[in-house]
Amino acid sequence: MSDVNTLSERIDALEMRLAYQDVTIETLNQTITAQWSEIDRLTRQVTELKERVREAESNAPGPLNEKPPHY
Results as ranks from 00 to 15, higher is better:
Ser2Asp: 08
Ser2Cys: 06
Ser2Leu: 08
Ser2Arg: 02
Asp3Ser: 13
Asp3Trp: 08
Asp3His: 04
Asp3Asn: 03
Val4Leu: 02
Asn5Gly: 11
Asn5Gln: 14
Asn5Lys: 09
Thr6Pro: 00
Thr6Ser: 00
Leu7Pro: 00
Leu7Gly: 04
Leu7His: 04
Leu7Val: 01
Ser8Leu: 10
Glu9Pro: 01
Glu9Lys: 00
Arg10Glu: 00
Arg10Trp: 04
Ile11Gln: 06
Asp12Tyr: 06
Ala13Met: 04
Leu14Met: 10
Leu14Asn: 05
Glu15Val: 07
Glu15Asp: 13
Glu15Ser: 06
Glu15His: 12
Met16Asp: 11
Met16Arg: 15
Met16Ile: 03
Met16Gln: 15
Met16Glu: 15
Leu18Ala: 01
Leu18His: 00
Leu18Met: 07
Ala19Pro: 08
Ala19Ile: 08
Ala19Phe: 11
Tyr20Arg: 14
Tyr20Val: 14
Gln21Lys: 06
Gln21Cys: 08
Asp22Met: 08
Ile25Gly: 05
Ile25His: 07
Glu26Met: 14
Thr27Pro: 01
Thr27Cys: 09
Leu28Thr: 15
Leu28Ala: 15
Leu28Glu: 12
Asn29Leu: 14
Asn29Phe: 12
Asn29Gly: 15
Asn29Ala: 12
Asn29His: 13
Gln30Ala: 14
Thr31Ile: 15
Ile32Arg: 09
Ile32Thr: 13
Ile32Pro: 01
Ile32Gly: 11
Thr33His: 13
Thr33Asn: 02
Thr33Ile: 12
Thr33Gln: 14
Ala34Tyr: 12
Ala34Pro: 00
Ala34Ile: 11
Ala34Asn: 13
Gln35Ile: 09
Gln35Glu: 11
Gln35Lys: 09
Trp36Val: 10
Ser37Arg: 11
Glu38Ile: 04
Ile39Ser: 01
Asp40Gln: 12
Asp40Lys: 07
Arg41Pro: 04
Arg41Val: 06
Arg41Ala: 11
Arg41Thr: 04
Arg41Glu: 09
Leu42Pro: 10
Thr43Tyr: 00
Thr43Val: 03
Arg44Asp: 09
Arg44His: 06
Arg44Tyr: 07
Arg44Glu: 03
Gln45Val: 01
Gln45Asn: 06
Gln45Trp: 07
Val46Tyr: 02
Val46Gln: 04
Val46Met: 01
Val46Cys: 03
Val46Asn: 03
Thr47His: 14
Thr47Phe: 15
Thr47Met: 08
Thr47Leu: 15
Glu48Asn: 03
Glu48Gln: 07
Leu49Arg: 05
Leu49Thr: 10
Lys50Gln: 06
Lys50Trp: 00
Lys50Val: 09
Lys50Met: 01
Glu51Lys: 00
Glu51His: 05
Glu51Tyr: 05
Arg52Cys: 01
Arg52Leu: 05
Arg52Glu: 01
Arg52Ser: 09
Val53Glu: 02
Arg54Val: 04
Glu55Leu: 02
Glu57Cys: 04
Ser58Arg: 14
Ser58Gly: 00
Asn59Thr: 14
Ala60Thr: 03
Ala60Asp: 05
Pro61Val: 08
Pro61Thr: 14
Gly62Tyr: 04
Pro63Asp: 15
Pro63Ile: 15
Leu64Met: 11
Leu64Cys: 05
Leu64Ala: 13
Asn65Pro: 05
Pro68Trp: 06
Pro68Ile: 01
Pro68Val: 07
Pro69Val: 02
Pro69Ala: 07
His70Phe: 00
His70Leu: 00
His70Gly: 06
Tyr71Ala: 07
Tyr71Trp: 13
